[in-house]
């Protein structure tokens, strides 16, 4: 490292202050709080014990993991094909599509929930349209429950997946395809033996980002179901900020567990990526 100089020191001090004050200190307080008794007195494991023994919190975990895995799976399948499709367009159109994708990736949270209420809610556009054909959407689909949440979660996974996977396809060069076909490989064989193995680490990486994205998503579910649908982020915010039922220490423990789940997902992805890459070499 080169010598410390005035510029380095004066720019790093405020930067580090912000990081410490608004990231490290809060995280530390959260983890510490999760081991403290109600009202911040004494040290205890009671909150973790309660979470592991209370079926209500099991369900919150289960629902969150299920909707995250399901929406990430659907999202990755769709975006693998969609991102490839985008690369087949002329460059000018690719850009237009990416701008639109980027725009929809910003369309999340409350506005997104509302757009789906207009489309699929109790008097939504599709609901009425189907009624005219004699189909009652409400029989099989409820926007304000599991099925509705899944549809919306996939909506915000999709642009994310396309934006993350699109650059990867540029890594697959046209010349590889040509060489493969010169050597007698069919397009199917090319994708099976060359394309997909090259893409796999990125697909796994994108999947874990999507998973983490859905695990932490709060605004959409909150806007749609308030606090009735049992998801981890909803439970956490209720425990921390609720006026009547506030139990911040328990909320801290849940948030710590959520954080650990995300860390585990990202580490698993790192490990998988490295394994796949080593196999390639």
């Amino acid at each position: 490292m080169r010598k410390w100089n005035g510029l380095l020191v004066t720019t790093l001090i405020p930067f580090c202050c912000f990081i410490v004050l608004f990231m490290l200190v809060p995280l530390l307080f959260m983890v510490m709080g999760s081991f403290q008794g109600e009202g911040g007195t004494g040290w205890t494991l009671a909150h973790y014990k309660e979470i592991f023994s209370n079926p209500f919190y099991h369900q919150a975990f289960k629902n969150s993991v299920l909707i995250s895995v399901w929406s990430a799976t659907m999202g990755i399948i769709l975006s693998v094909f969609a991102a490839y499709g985008v690369t087949r367009f002329p460059v000018k159109w690719q850009r237009r599509i990416l701008v639109f994708t980027n725009l929809t990736s910003n369309f999340a949270g409350i506005p997104l929930a509302f757009a789906f209420i207009v489309l699929l809610g109790n008097s939504g556009l599709f609901t009425i349209l189907l009624q005219h054909f004699g189909i009652n959407l409400m029989d099989s689909f409820h926007l304000f429950s599991w099925s509705g949440l899944t549809v919306i979660y996939i909506y915000f996974q999709l642009p994310l997946g396309v934006l993350l996977l699109f650059p990867i396809y540029h890594g697959i060069q046209e010349s590889w395809k040509e060489s493969a076909s010169l050597l007698g490989a069919s397009p199917f064989q090319f994708w099976l033996r060359v394309g997909i193995p090259v893409l796999l680490p990125s697909i796994a990486g994108t999947f874990s980002i999507m998973f983490a994205n859905a695990m932490g998503a709060y605004a959409t579910a909150y806007a749609l179901t308030g606090s009735t649908y049992n998801l981890l982020p909803i439970r956490i915010s209720g425990l921390v900020s609720g006026d009547v039922f506030a139990r911040p220490e328990l909320g801290s423990a849940l948030a710590t567990l959520l954080g650990l789940t995300l860390v585990a997902a990202l580490l698993l992805n790192e490990w998988l990526t490295r394994r796949i890459r080593r196999d390639l070499q």
Binding site: I19, A212, S252
Partner: peptide, 22 residues
């Protein structure tokens, strides 16, 4: 590493930490 952490850290977790701290 910081960039990755901030990116992966959901708002709900930050909210809990900030409430506990401040």
């Amino acid at each position: 590493a910081l960039v990755m952490t901030t990116y992966a850290l959901p708002g709900v977790i930050m909210a809990v930490g900030l409430i506990r701290a401040y």
